[in-house]
Design a protein around this nucleic acid. Structure first.
Length: 469
DNA sequence: GCATGATCATGC
DNA sequence: GCATGATCATGC
């Protein structure tokens, strides 16, 4: 089979799984398997392909070869490409011991310095024994990634040392994050060393964006050049962190108008677009950070950074609240908050680019990385729960009013801006006829679909908590 | 002036 | 053709 002392031998043996299913690759005994739960696939591979019993040791799975085995699902996009279905969850963070660790000697590094990765194509219609294994390879971190990951690890450790384990968020970090682990909030509470408050159990994980980068590397898709890097030389990150580096790149352009910036950076965009500033700022972002126009910013993709462009008026008023993508009513109906798309979204790291009105034009004013504090995420949870309730009851329409243009305007029961300091729900569609299906028919109208809506961050929240802070 | 519903240009 | 990242429009 393979030599447990030889990294090469293990990897070679693992690669034979490619283009097979577990049913094909393992003996008949796998048919009688009796494993369950989320890590089931990995357990089956360990037991029936590699022939050892799964453990939850602090050591790597292949101790002698210092290799940690990880199995993770892929999904297929409409255009036929493959992407990570979810983040890659690594070892659990033991709040009581990690605070005294150094990165180099940490439980994270001891276990995960060298990964053996098996990516299979998830398909909810199939038995998991019949999932097709698409990619198998080992993974060691490129030096620029490793610098970011080490800094991420230190950010997480600092928060635990500051007695803020309960406030940890995926948005605190770039590639390596502290993701929640466990079915329900109550079941997963743990003690932390420097605060009496219990904290949700969390595990180190690689963000989905970072896993996509690993996949692209392994399958050598990256050679077709979809990504452009900000960090050209990894040693840059010896002196500054990645966020400091990015902010410093903006500094020479602060105070310049969009018009001037477009001129300097040779950007031609018709100014009739509602997202004119956003398009300009995206282009500016790439020009300033030295990324080709046609390419995506690699570090932003890996860290799943949400870029938001904001116009600020002279009196600091921000005219518009901040939208997110339209949500799927049925999805929210079936989700729990902890596994919800919205929780994922607001736990992300944001890059806010503020343009301020100086009377004539909008001036590049402030550039700021931000992620939502713990208490505000809890408020957003209330907005989400209220939204879910409205969908569940089917009581969506509050009233329909015919306006002066003889058009019917629908008013909903979704959470309003006045109800919550942080966020609200409003339409986000091409027009009122642009809808998504409802899981429960609308009570008053009987409609089975409803105008697309999304969650918004309140404009005054953005002003007070992000722009002015 | 603000809350809330409606809508638009762009790019993939 | 549709999602995205926004801004516009109306009425109180």
């Amino acid at each position: 089979m393979y030599d447990v002392n030889s990294t090469k031998s293990i990897i070679r043996y693992a690669k034979r799984l490619k283009n097979k299913t577990l049913r094909e690759a393992c003996g008949a005994e796998i048919e009688q398997q009796n494993y369950s739960g989320k890590g089931k696939y990995g357990q089956l591979v360990e037991k029936f392909y590699f022939g050892y019993n799964p453990n939850s040791d602090s050591k790597p799975d292949f101790e002698e070869a210092k290799l940690e085995l990880k199995c993770s699902p892929l999904k297929r996009l409409v255009n036929g490409e493959y992407r990570a279905k979810e983040r890659l969850v690594l070892n659990i963070i033991n709040y009581k011991t990690v605070f005294s660790e150094n990165f180099e000697t940490s439980s994270f590094w001891k276990k995960n310095a060298h990964l053996l990765l098996i990516f299979y194509l998830h398909n909810q219609d199939l038995n998991l024994l019949d999932y097709l294994i698409m990619l198998v390879d080992d993974w060691e971190y490129p030096s620029d990634d490793l610098r970011v990951i080490k800094n991420d690890w230190e950010i997480i450790n600092k928060k635990i040392n500051d007695g803020k384990a309960h406030e940890l968020s995926e948005g605190d970090t770039f590639y390596l994050s502290a993701c929640t682990k466990g079915e329900t909030a109550a079941k997963s509470l743990r003690d932390q060393p420097f605060n009496d408050k219990q904290a949700k159990q969390r595990a180190y994980s690689f963000k989905t964006g970072y896993v996509n980068h690993i996949i692209a590397n392994i399958s050598q898709e990256e050679n077709n050049g979809v990504y452009g890097k900000i960090i050209k030389r990894p040693s840059v990150l010896d002196r500054v962190t990645i966020d400091e580096y990015i902010i410093s790149k903006f500094r020479p352009y602060l105070g310049l108008s969009t018009k001037k910036l477009a001129e300097i950076l040779n950007i031609v965009i018709s100014n009739t677009a509602k997202n004119f500033n956003a398009l300009v700022s995206k282009r500016i972002l790439k020009e300033i950070l030295g990324v080709e126009r046609t390419k995506e910013i690699e570090e932003f993709e890996k860290a799943e950074i949400e870029v938001k462009t904001i116009r600020v008026e002279q009196n600091n008023r921000i005219r518009e609240s901040i939208s997110f993508p339209a949500f799927d009513y049925t999805q929210i109906y079936n989700e729990k908050w902890l596994e919800s798309e919205m929780k994922d979204l607001i736990e992300r790291k944001f890059l806010f680019i503020f343009f301020k009105n100086d009377g004539n034009d909008y001036i590049l004013d402030k550039v700021k990385f931000w992620n939502m504090p713990y208490s505000d995420r809890n408020e957003m949870r209330e907005v989400w729960l209220r939204t879910k309730k409205v969908i569940q009851t089917g009581e969506i329409v509050k009233e329909i009013i015919v306006n002066s243009d003889n058009k019917a305007v629908k008013y909903s029961n979704f959470p309003k801006k006045t109800e919550n300091r942080v966020g609200h729900v409003r339409p986000h569609a091409i027009n009122a006829a642009d809808t998504y299906p409802l899981p429960i028919s609308e009570k008053i109208t009987g409609a089975t679909e409803y105008t697309k809506h999304c969650f918004w961050l309140n404009w005054d929240y953005v002003r007070d908590e992000i722009y002015l802070k």
